[in-house]
Amino acid sequence: MDVGMVSGVRDMIIARDVHKWFDRLHVLKGINLTVKTGEVVVIFGPSGSGKSTFIRTINRLEEHQRGTIIVDGIEMTNDIRNIHAIRREIGMVFQSFNLFPHLTVMQNITLAPMWVRRWPREQAEQIAMDLLRRVGIPEQAHKYPAQLSGGQQQRVAIARALAMQPKIMLFDEPTSALDPEMIKEVLDVMTELAKSGMTMICVTHEMGFARSVADRMVFMDAGQIIEEGTPEQIFNNPQHERTKLFLSQILH
């Protein structure tokens, strides 16, 4: 059953009334969000607002306890096969990179294509080299992650996620752990990716990136979506006091 076809453009992600508790702590209090194919959505908000938890429910690194999440026409349930099938189509980039330290850059990137997609090594390595060129570090292919700078590691992590040729990319504060001079090289890669038509959800506080790339911005606080709109609406004419306050704090 195809749930996501609405008015010609396919809805890639549909979240309806998503709730999540950590023990007794209510961290997601009814999130409703629909992301269309090719759309770039930036989620921002104070720490502890549930934004990371929410994007982690999309590929079920966190389980939601109430509501519905439908990704690419498949509903997220406890069916483990569905979960693996959906995860194959979703790339994720973490704040702390999470590269595999015992594998070279090349092995990091080709691991999932070879073991999950069952592509032959030559094909996987060719795709990996193309991706490394795209993120600007083909010469690092045979080094280990620990030999790279933070910015280079995060670009490898992006290449690793893209190697599965996903339909959606999730970014969970990809630049928060980076030194200032390395943030730009990662944002450049993300900007290029957004322009190529990838469906993206980014949790980030890089407002320059959001302004130039996002189709839509979502402000979250205390487990709820407070406000959403285009970057112009959010930056120039925010509706809620909390949005105004938060923006004034991070934009100085």
Partner: peptide
């Protein structure tokens, strides 16, 4: 835990 999450996010099952 991040290592395991990264592997899961790539679609690797528990055994792999």
């Amino acid at each position: 835990l991040g290592q395991i999450e990264a592997a899961h996010a790539l679609g690797l099952n528990e055994a792999l």
